[in-house]
């Protein structure tokens, strides 16, 4: 998937990223954007004490996807099947890719591996991850 074709028409999905670049650098450890893109493309969403990842996996069977979590890294692994297994075909367009993929996504904080929820609908994967209870920021009372 080429990003250029999806960035046309004045739409800039990375605009928010650029605006947030300074805090993002803190969260993601100075990782340049070019190295961060791959398949699948991911978006990150922040909740109160949770983070959600959405990824575009069109044509991927949910049974062919493997998710794993360790500390603050989520790994998405799987394979994409080609549009046809027939070899005796004449190709007019061949823009889709297929084969094995693996993507490791750095999360803004450590997550509880026991409380991960994943949904897969219409080629879009959504993974909800929670910050462990022990890691949650605690409100500190100020004595008068």
């Amino acid at each position: 998937m080429t990003m250029a074709s999806r960035l046309g028409g004045g739409f800039d999905p990375l605009g928010e990223f650029r605006r947030l670049q300074n805090p993002m650098h803190r969260l993601f450890g100075q990782r340049p954007l070019a190295a961060a893109t791959g398949f699948p493309a991911v978006n990150l969403w922040a909740g109160a004490d949770s983070v959600a990842i959405t990824a575009e996996l069109p044509g991927v069977d949910p049974a062919d996807v493997e998710l794993s979590v360790k500390d603050d890294v989520l790994t998405v692994r799987g394979s994409r099947r080609p549009s046809t297994d027939e070899s005796d075909v004449a190709w007019h367009r061949r823009e889709r890719s297929h084969g094995q993929f693996q993507r490791m996504v750095q999360l803004p904080f450590r997550v509880d591996a026991e409380r991960v929820e994943a949904r897969f609908a219409d080629g879009v994967l959504e993974v909800d991850l929670q910050r462990p209870e022990a890691d949650k920021p605690r409100r500190i009372e100020i004595k008068h």
């Binding site: 999806r6 928010e16 993002m24 978006n43 990150l44 219409d122």
Partner: peptide, 16 residues
């Protein structure tokens, strides 16, 4: 038909 709950704020985007 993708819908995102209001409580979530997008912090990083690779696709639109």
């Amino acid at each position: 038909s993708v819908a995102r709950p209001d409580s979530y704020r997008r912090i990083y985007a690779e696709y639109g």
